[in-house]
Design a protein around this nucleic acid. Structure first.
Lengths: 232, 232
DNA sequence: GTAATACTTCGGTAACGGCCGAACCATTGA
DNA sequence: TCAATGGTTCGGCCGTTACCGAAGTATTAC
């Protein structure tokens, strides 16, 4: 009884187009201002304000005030994971024909995007596969990986900030996250975020404004080949 | 755009109390008649019929006609997984105080229940943990386990029907499924279902009518100790 | 100080969608 | 063939809620 209501309440919250649009934008893992979210969802500020406070109330979002701005972000990676799992469902929802059409409409998003704060899509999968293929990453427990000695070395040489990643002890270090477009897990958690950071810092990838879509630069494409022995 | 709409549509479908109630009942993994679902949700047959056809249309449910009855079941284990992940979110949703209260209201459900067609809750976790602890089960790939030689032997001695389980080749054999109450994976897939079957056939557990809740019998409690070296 | 920006609260409107009664198919059983 | 049961379709009612305009509160800028 209780659990049923909880299910319908959470789902209903995600079930409104405007709110879904906001959540979708926030899947880039960054904090956005209320007006940014309102504009993106195509609604007025006052309407958005209502939506946002309801989602904060339900612990889907966290809010932080800064000057006269209010920044909203997803409350936890669990929220991001639930959204991904719904999107994975949505992929099988449509008939095969229209499903392919829908994805063709969003090829960039399928190619490379952020999922909360780590890389996803074909590029995220390529990186993850390369790490496991070379024995840098091995399964540890049900939904995690661990870095091997060679993986440790590899990350250091790459310039991945492992210390900071390890310092956020509250968070899973190398978590598996189901990719809704590729239907296979990519690396998330603190390590996933640190790797994504490296990609941005070294100019291998850049975020597109107002979107989860990420563009792989030319040097990024070369880096994938030279460092990861992967092509995309 | 496309993916956003898909998200909101799926979520909205789960977001109606009556539909959520139906989905929740169907989480027992069995097929239920339309009137059964209607009665359980507290709505009339004609209202339920509308809900059900919408969910079939969206590939959340699968329908099978049998005589003048129509049986509905969850369309796939992915659907079950998405529902579980939403429930896991709902658990953290409320403030710690009321969250504990909500769970205390449903102690049986937390203790032992079916998730789709396999055991979940504390009992499901106890069984899974015992299997891994004794080296009967080991990780294989990102979200699966595999049965070791000793595990093979153990299951045979227990009377688990491995042959039938292996014959359903379309399905994952030993899948990991995140438990929303315990926050850790328990065993699902064909093997998980076969183990649950064994529990029911040997009288170790029995389903409660119209609910996912499962009662562990006295002999079941003893079996957990003698066969699995586990207490709950 | 005043003006401008960012956001929220309130009130009223409009529309979407859940709900049931009634009527309508389809299968079973006498 | 006729009644009974399970399920679906149709039409109209009603409640919920998303939405925006207007007005109100902070915070920053001049």
């Amino acid at each position: 009884m209780t659990t049923v209501n909880a299910l319908s309440e959470i789902a209903a919250l995600m079930g409104d187009p405007a709110r879904a649009s906001m959540l979708s934008l926030l899947m880039d893992g960054r904090a956005h201002t209320a007006s940014d979210l309102a504009h993106n969802a195509g609604i007025t500020a006052q309407t958005a304000s209502g939506h946002l406070s309801r989602m904060v109330e339900a612990n889907l979002l966290a809010a932080r005030a800064e000057g006269r701005n209010r920044f909203y972000r997803l409350a936890s990676s669990e929220v991001a994971h639930a959204i991904e799992s719904l999107m994975a469902l949505a992929g099988t929802r449509a008939a095969p024909a229209s499903k392919a059409a829908a994805w063709r409409r969003d090829p960039d998003l399928r190619f490379c995007r952020t999922c909360y704060d780590h890389l996803a899509g074909q590029v995220g999968i390529a990186v993850t596969d390369s790490l496991t293929r070379h024995g840098h990453l091995e399964p540890k427990g049900p939904r995690d990986w661990q870095l091997t000695n060679s993986g440790e070395l590899f990350c250091e040489r790459l310039g991945v900030d492992l210390d900071t990643a390890r310092r956020t002890s509250s968070r899973h270090f190398a978590r598996q996250c189901l990719d809704w477009s590729e239907r296979r897990p990519h690396i998330s958690g603190a390590l996933g975020a640190a790797i994504a950071d490296t990609f941005f810092k070294r100019g291998w990838a850049e975020r597109l404004r107002r979107s989860r879509t990420v563009r792989l630069t030319d040097s990024g494409r070369r880096a994938l080949g030279s460092h990861f022995a992967a092509t995309v």
